[in-house]
């Protein structure tokens, strides 16, 4: 675990509340608006920030995140620029953990060693790479751990007890429990089943368990946050970006709308256990 991630979850444990993990697409809708959205996320209530690494073929994402990635690619994002934005963010904020999320090919083409070195130097804390299951750990997971970055694994409803130890074996930072089978942006899963699944995972690991997929509102965040160490919100945020563009461009209104939603979600996690 990186020190930042450790410290953040330790502080949240003292406060007895779940983490609010917010996903925004790197470079969406343009570099300038993205940088402003990012800079204001901690003040709006985000405890951990996930930055999407846009990819042309996001096979596990629903339409909301797909379109956000296309907006970002059209605006010229690439990994180098994204790492530049992380470094810029770190000049003002040295405490909020930052996790990059996406697919393997752009990293593979950047070069694994170069990417890990540059990500670490920029102030990235962890990676979530959707299309790298434990069977492919030698590709990126093991080198990332060696480079001092967290490798955050997804566990899903299809991950049974037999497979769970394998999925958890090289996981660090937190476990991302995907609350349903399907792509990002679907409907909220049955909350009792989510609670049960989180309990099952926690029996196998001391790493915090965050839950994502389908969480859209303050109420969802409060409900899911009862069971989990963190709630992850992504599609609702990128949809808010999409709904608040002016002639396809980002404005102050876009930034305000995103921070407004994050503020509401933050109120949700704060009352999750009261």
């Amino acid at each position: 675990m990186t020190a930042r991630m450790d410290a953040r979850f330790a502080a949240l444990k003292c406060a007895d509340r779940p983490a609010l993990v917010t996903f925004i697409m790197g470079g969406d809708p343009d570099m300038a608006t993205f940088a402003d959205i990012l800079a204001g996320l901690p003040a709006a209530g985000a405890d951990i920030i996930e930055l999407g690494m846009a990819f042309s073929d996001p096979m596990a994402d629903g339409p909301g995140v797909q379109i956000a990635g296309l907006r970002a690619l059209k605006a010229g994002i690439n990994l180098k620029k994204l790492l530049g934005a992380v470094a810029e963010f770190r000049r003002a904020d040295t405490e909020t953990p930052m996790v990059l999320m996406g697919y393997y090919n752009p990293i593979y083409i950047y070069g694994v060693d170069a990417f890990l070195a540059d990500a670490k130097a920029a102030g990235v804390d962890g990676l979530i790479v959707v299309d790298l299951p434990p069977e492919e750990d030698a590709e990126l997971c093991l080198p990332a751990l060696k480079a001092g970055l967290n490798f955050i694994r997804l566990a899903t409803p299809t991950t049974d007890d037999k497979r769970l130890p394998k999925v958890l074996s090289n996981t660090s930072g937190f476990v991302y429990y995907v609350s349903m089978t399907g792509v990002t942006g679907g409907e909220l899963a049955d909350t009792d089943a989510v609670g049960e699944a989180v309990g099952r995972i926690k029996a196998h690991t001391h790493v915090p368990v965050c839950v994502g997929f389908g969480i859209k509102s303050e109420q969802d965040a409060a409900t899911i946050g009862r069971h989990a160490d963190g709630v992850v919100v992504g599609t609702a945020i990128v949809n808010t970006v999409a709904e608040n563009l002016t002639d396809g461009r980002g404005t102050d209104k876009t930034i305000g709308a995103v921070h407004g939603l994050v503020g509401a979600l933050a109120r949700g996690v704060k009352r999750a256990r009261t």
Binding site: Y104, P133, E135, E136, L154, T156, T158, T159, D160
Partner: peptide
């Protein structure tokens, strides 16, 4: 056994699909 032809092939899928 890992689905490789030399360096090519493999199982680069989301965890949900891995058991399948």
């Amino acid at each position: 056994e890992n689905g490789r032809f030399g360096d090519f092939g493999g199982r680069f899928v989301a965890e949900t699909l891995m058991p399948l």
